[in-house]
Write a protein that binds this DNA or RNA. Structure first.
Length: 818
RNA sequence: GCGGAUGUGGUGGAAUUGGUAGACACGCUAGUCUUAGGAACUAGUGCCUCCGGGCGUGAAGGUUCAAGUCCUUUCAUCCGCACCA
C-alpha cells in the first residue's frame, strides 16, 4: 500500500497546475466572477512567516472553493516594494533597493508556489516597476488636474531618524510607525491629497460595507465628523475676530472665556499689557514642546491670560482670552469658546485659573428656567441634553432646538455659521526619500508647479550611488542634478523636477484595479475589464484599519467621480484575520528568533497541505492564535487517515455491506455542513466536520466497502478537502477515478431528504433537567413521541402524577413540567 | 475618557430560531501490537459524589418548560482612538 508522502506528491501537482495554466483567467461574461485577493506583501528579506501563510491560505481556499463552484476566479499576486524598509536595508548593506527587491521577490514567489497557492502569476505586478508606477504617476496628475493634489506649507510630522515627513496615519502614539522614533513637528512645503473633500462620501458608504464592525468604527472615528458652528468673538478694542468652532452653540451664553491654541496667529498679537511677557514666554515654550509631551499630560492643564478680552456675541459681555496647549492648533479653528459648566476640559481649566462658571443648561426640564447653579455642586459638569437657562430669549428651549436657533440668530448678524469639521486631515504624500515613485511634477519659474504630461510618463526613478537622506529636508534625488534639471512642459524653459517621492500607500491605492488589466500599456486599465472583475469580492488581510483601507476607498471614490470605474467601493467583503504569534504567545520577530517559516514546516515533511490545514484549524479567522508545533502533528495524522482510508478502499474487495444507508446519510449531512461552513468562512469548523466524517467512516469500514456508496462518499470527501489540501486531493481524486483536476469538477450537492436519519435520539427533560433519552423513528407523530417519553423508565421516577405540561421540540427534545 | 471586541475543561476552540454545553483537535491516562516510529490502533478524559445524584459557560440577579445564547447590573482582559471643543 502506498504511503502518504507529501514531499513527493506536492511538487508533482504544483508542476501540473503550472503547466496546464489552470489558474490563468480571462474575462468571461458567461460565468460568475469571483475576485479574491490578499493584501499584497511587502517582500522583506526575512521571507514569509506563519502569519503570511495564514492570510494567503485563506485567500487560496476561498479562490479554490469558488472555482469548484464553476466561478471564473481571479486570484492575483503582486509586490508592494517601495518604502522605507527596503531603502534602509539597502543603505545598510550597500546593495541597491532594486537588486534587494528582486531577490526578495524571488524568495517570496518560491514560498507561495511551494504552499500550493492557486495564483494567476501572469498578472504579477510590482509597484516599483516603471510600467506600474507610470500609472500611479498618471493618477497623481489626474488628481492634480482636479485640485485633489496640492502643495502647501505647514507643520508636519517629521521623523528625525528616517529623515522624512510622515502622514498622520503613520504616526503611532507620537512615534514613527517604521522605526519607533519620537517624531517632531517641522514646517515644510509638502504635497497633499485632498481626502477631506471626500470625508462625507467615505463616511456615507461605511454602513453599506460588508466589513468587520471594528474596522468600520475605526474609519468612522478616524474621519471624525463633527457638526457644529463657527462663531465670531470680536476682540475688544480691535478689528480682529476670533473664530471658534463648537459643536455646542446652544451653550454660547455660558461661554465665559476664549482659549487659543499656542500656534494660533492671534495668540502673540493679543499678548498685551502686564501679561505680555508671561504670555509670550508660554506660547514660545508650548510651541517648542513636542506634541507627545503636550498630549501625554492630560490631567494638569496649563495656560496663560493674554491680557486681552473678546466679546461674547450672545451676551455682549467681555470675556478674557487665554492661551492654552489643550487647544489644538490643527483642529477646527484653533480656538474654542470655553463653557466650563458643560465641558469637562473647560471646567478643569476654569477651576484651576478661577474663571467664571455659568450654568446655561438644566438637565431636568422640571427645573424650568430657574438656575440650578447657585445651589448645585460646583464640581458637577453637565454635558448632556436639556433645557436652556440663563440664555436670554432662548430660555426654555431644548438644547437640540437651540443649536439651530442660535446659529440662525448669529448668522443674521454675520457672527456665525453652521460648520462641519473633520478630525481627518488631508493625506500628506511627500516623502523626502529615494525609494518611491517620483512625484510627476516640474517646477517652472514662470508656470510654477506643472504636472508632467502623460506622454512624458513615467518619470523614471534614476539609479544613483548614494541614496541615503542627509537630513536637509530633501530626498537624495535632489543631488541627481542631471535628472533634476529639465524643461518645463508648458513653455520649454528651464525647470526643476520635484525631488520628493510619493508615499508607498499611493501605489497600493489602486493595485486591485491594475490586477485585472496588468499588462495594459495604453492606459491604467480598460474600463470594461475593470468593471467586470471589480469590485473585489474578498479582500483578506490582518493589518491596516484606517490608512490603506481608507486610501484605497478614497481613490476609488475619485475614480468613480472621474468616470473611470462604475463603482464607488473597491472591496465588498473584507476578511480580517488575526495574528499568529510564536509558541510562547509573543509576537514572532526575527530578533527573538521565534519566527516560524512555512517553508521549514513543509520541508520537515509535513507538507504544504498539512500546513494549510493547520493554520485554518487553529481557530476562527479573526482571532489571534499561537503556533503550536504539536498541533500540526494532529493535522498530519488526520491527512494520513484520509490517505489510508482511500488506499484501503481501493485495495478492498467490494461487497454490499448493510451500512450503505448510514454512509449515505452521513455523506449528505456532511456536504450540507461543510458547504455552509466554507461559505461562511468557518474553515476551522469545516475541517472539524471533515474529521468527524472520516472518524465515522472508519467506524463503518469494519463492515467492508461497497463500491458505489463508498466511492461516492470518498470522492465527496476528497472534493471537500480540496480547497484546503489541494495536492493530496488531486492525487486521491485520480485514484478514485476522477478524470480532470478536482478544481474542475463540480462541488458536491446534498439531498435534504437523504440527510435525515431513520432513527433519531431525543432527549427527555423533567423540570428542565435531562432525565433520559428515547429513540424515535423519523416519521413519528408528536403525540406518540410524548407518550414514549412519559413511559421512559427513568423519567417515571421524576414524574409523579399528571404532568402540567409536555413540550415537544421536533427531533430535539421532550420537556415535561410537573 | 470614548469606541470596538472577548471571557466556555489542563490547552486551542465547538454549539441555526433559546432546545442534550464541551463537537473537533492538542495534551493526559490505560491497554493492544510491533519491522521501537514523528508510530498506528482501542478505550477513557468538565468538576464533585455518600454512586441516588449534584454542580457547571467571568460574577450577581431576572425572563422562560428550557439560557453559553435574551434582559439588568457588575468584574476582568485585549485592541483601536485619545485634551478633536
Amino acid at each position: 500500500m502506498r504511503r502518504y508522502n507529501p514531499s513527493e506528491i506536492e511538487p508533482k501537482w504544483q508542476q501540473i497546475w503550472e503547466e496546464q495554466k489552470v489558474n490563468e483567467v480571462a474575462v468571461d461574461k458567461d460565468k460568475i466572477k469571483t475576485y479574491a485577493a490578499g493584501m499584497f506583501p511587502y517582500p522583506s528579506g526575512a521571507g514569509m512567516h506563519a502569519g503570511h501563510a495564514f492570510g494567503y491560505t485563506i485567500v487560496d481556499v476561498i479562490a479554490r472553493f469558488y472555482r469548484q463552484h464553476g466561478h471564473n476566479v481571479l486570484n492575483p499576486m503582486g509586490w508592494d516594494t517601495f518604502g522605507l524598509p527596503a531603502e534602509n536595508y539597502a543603505i545598510k548593506t550597500g546593495t541597491s533597493p532594486q537588486v534587494a527587491t528582486a531577490t526578495n521577490i524571488a524568495n517570496f514567489k518560491k514560498q507561495f508556489k511551494r504552499m500550493g497557492m492557486s495564483i494567476d502569476w501572469s498578472r504579477e505586478i510590482n509597484t516599483s516597476d516603471p510600467e506600474y508606477y507610470r500609472w500611479t504617476q498618471w493618477i497623481f496628475t489626474k488628481l492634480f488636474e482636479r485640485g485633489l493634489a496640492y502643495q502647501k506649507e505647514s507643520l508636519q510630522w517629521w521623523c528625525p531618524v528616517d529623515k522624512t515627513v510622515l502622514a498622520n496615519e503613520q504616526v503611532e502614539a507620537g512615534h514613527c510607525w517604521r522605526c519607533g522614533t519620537l517624531v517632531e513637528k517641522k514646517a515644510m512645503k509638502q504635497w497633499f491629497f485632498k481626502i477631506t473633500e471626500y470625508a462625507d462620501s467615505l463616511l456615507e458608504e461605511i454602513p453599506s460595507l460588508d466589513w468587520p464592525q471594528k474596522i468600520k468604527t475605526a474609519q468612522t472615528n478616524w474621519i471624525g465628523r463633527s457638526v457644529g458652528a463657527e462663531i465670531e468673538f470680536a476682540v475688544d478694542g480691535s478689528d480682529d475676530f476670533i473664530t471658534v468652532f463648537s459643536t455646542r452653540p446652544d451653550t454660547l451664553f455660558g461661554a465665559s472665556f476664549v482659549v487659543l491654541a499656542p500656534e494660533h496667529t492671534l495668540a502673540t498679537k493679543l499678548a498685551a499689557g502686564d501679561f505680555k511677557d508671561a504670555a509670550e514666554a508660554y506660547i514660545k515654550e508650548a510651541v517648542k514642546k513636542s506634541e507627545i509631551e503636550r498630549t501625554n499630560d492630560t490631567k494638569e492643564k496649563t495656560g496663560v491670560f493674554t491680557g486681552s478680552y473678546a466679546v461674547n456675541p450672545a451676551t455682549g459681555e467681555k470675556v478674557p482670552v487665554w492661551v492654552a496647549d489643550y487647544v489644538l492648533g490643527g483642529y477646527g479653528t484653533g480656538a474654542v469658546m470655553a463653557v466650563p459648566a458643560h465641558d469637562e476640559r473647560d471646567f478643569a481649566f476654569a477651576e484651576k485659573f478661577n474663571l467664571p462658571i455659568i450654568d446655561v443648561i438644566a438637565a431636568d426640564p422640571e427645573f424650568g428656567t430657574e438656575s440650578v447653579t447657585a445651589e448645585a455642586d460646583a464640581a458637577k459638569i453637565y454635558s448632556g441634553e436639556g433645557i436652556l437657562i440663563n440664555s436670554g430669549q432662548f430660555d426654555g428651549t431644548s438644547t437640540s432646538d437651540a443649536r439651530e436657533q442660535i446659529v440662525a440668530w448669529l448668522e443674521q448678524r454675520s457672527l456665525g455659521r453652521a460648520k462641519t469639521t473633520y478630525r481627518m486631515r488631508d493625506w500628506l504624500i511627500s516623502r523626502q526619500r529615494y525609494w518611491g515613485a517620483p512625484i510627476p511634477v516640474v517646477h517652472c519659474e514662470v508656470h510654477g508647479a506643472v504636472a508632467v504630461p502623460e506622454s512624458q510618463l513615467p518619470v523614471v526613478l534614476p539609479e544613483i550611488e548614494d541614496f541615503a537622506p542627509k537630513g536637509d529636508g530633501k530626498s537624495a534625488l535632489a543631488r541627481a542634478e542631471d535628472w533634476v534639471n529639465t524643461t518645463c512642459p508648458e513653455c520649454g524653459g528651464p525647470a526643476l523636477r520635484e525631488t520628493d517621492t510619493m508615499d508607498g500607500y499611493a501605489c497600493s491605492s489602486w493595485y486591485l484595479l491594475r490586477y485585472t488589466d496588468p499588462k495594459n500599456a495604453e492606459k491604467a486599465w480598460d474600463p470594461e475589464t475593470v468593471n467586470y472583475w471589480n469590485p473585489l469580492d474578498f479582500y483578506v488581510g490582518g493589518d491596516h484599519a484606517v490608512a490603506h483601507l481608507l486610501y484605497v476607498r478614497f481613490w476609488t471614490h475619485v475614480f468613480k467621480d472621474m468616470g473611470l470605474v462604475d463603482f464607488k467601493e473597491p472591496v465588498k467583503k473584507l476578511v480580517y484575520h488575526g495574528y499568529i504569534n510564536a509558541e510562547d504567545g509573543t509576537k514572532m520577530s526575527k530578533s527573538k528568533g521565534n519566527v516560524v517559516d512555512p517553508l521549514d514546516v513543509i520541508e520537515q515533511g509535513y507538507g504544504a497541505d498539512a500546513l494549510r490545514t493547520y493554520v485554518l484549524f487553529m481557530g476562527p479567522l479573526e482571532l489571534d492564535s499561537s503556533w503550536d508545533s504539536r498541533g500540526i502533528g494532529g493535522i498530519y495524522r488526520f491527512l494520513n487517515r484520509v490517505w489510508t482510508l482511500v488506499q484501503e478502499y481501493s485495495a478492498a474487495e467490494k461487497s454490499f455491506t448493510g451500512n450503505d444507508d448510514a454512509v449515505r446519510t452521513l455523506q449528505h449531512k456532511t456536504i450540507r455542513k461543510v458547504t455552509a461552513d466554507y461559505r461562511d468562512l468557518g474553515f476551522n469548523t469545516a475541517i472539524a466536520a471533515l474529521m468527524e466524517y472520516v472518524n465515522e467512516l472508519y467506524k463503518y469500514k469494519v463492515d467492508g466497502f461497497s463500491d458505489e456508496t463508498w466511492g461516492d462518499a470518498l470522492r465527496t470527501l476528497v472534493q471537500m478537502l480540496a480547497p484546503i489540501a489541494p495536492h493530496m486531493s488531486d492525487e486521491l481524486w485520480v485514484q478514485l477515478g476522477g478524470e480532470v483536476l478536482v478544481q474542475q469538477a463540480t462541488w458536491p450537492t446534498w439531498d435534504e431528504a437523504l440527510t435525515v436519519e431513520n432513527t433519531i435520539t431525543v432527549a427527555v427533560q423533567v423540570n428542565g433537567k435531562i432525565r433520559g433519552e428515547i429513540e424515535i423513528t423519523k416519521d413519528m407523530e408528536a403525540e406518540a413521541v410524548k407518550e414514549l417519553a412519559l413511559s421512559h423508565e427513568n423519567v417515571l421516577k421524576f414524574v409523579t402524577g399528571e404532568p402540567k405540561k409536555v413540550i415537544y421540540v421536533p427531533g430535539r427534545l421532550v420537556s415535561i413540567v410537573v
